[in-house]
Amino acid sequence: MSIVMTTRPPEAPSNKVASFKPTLLQTEEHHLCPGCGEPVAIRLVLEVIEELGLAQKNVSIIGHGCYGSFIMTMDVDSTLCLHGRAPAVATGLKRMRPDVAVWTLQGDGDMTSEGLAEILHATARGENITCILLNNGVFGDTGGQMTASSVIGQRTKNTLEGRDATYHGHPIVIGDMVAAMPGSAYVARGSVHNAASIAATRRLIRKGFQRQVEKKGLSLVEILTMCPTGWFVPASGGADYMMESLGKTYPLGEIKDISASE
């Protein structure tokens, strides 16, 4: 089979339709593992911020996880805060700068294990912030331990036989909890396991930020992201594994949109 030359742009007349990276990334380099879903989710957020004209009007509050390294490459004003506390830090900043789009970037360990109080109280107060949850059901940064969001049966480094509800408890479905509270304006769950769901997730993120711009209350966009390393599966099998495990506990779609019901 013939191979097309892909080392330089084509000579025949053509338009570039997609660049290597969104403009709000300073470089496409990162050290996340092969098959990780987080870079794609972060790319979507940055693209949405630019689309909505928020590039010079946003601050990211980043939690602790693999995604944290993007603080060095995301070209937005950022702080990397203490583990789990992003919604609190975002609250302080947003209350003082109400016209800046303030968003948190958190993993499930950050949001549902260490920082459950902060996300729930920020929701209860109806803080006008957008929280992006990258949910892979595992502490990826430390090598694959159970979080509060690990699903039943999930093998992690400290649930070697799989998470057992009678021993390890049940996963916290934070999206549903936040949606049930009056302070939330928008809650949705997307995924980055294939091109179609990536496109759909971009729309969810966009709505999440729009609700903040409209000052409707807290928006939470949960994104299921692959962590083949933390799941002990081959990189190429991450997408399928995710939808067979996490995808069953965390169904995709919009959970709440107060604007839609108006």
Partner: peptide, 18 residues
């Protein structure tokens, strides 16, 4: 200070312990 205005400038601001 993080006022959100320097995004996309190539010189965005950062507060980080590391």
């Amino acid at each position: 200070q993080l006022d959100g205005t320097s995004g996309g400038s190539g010189m965005s601001r950062q507060i980080w312990t590391f």
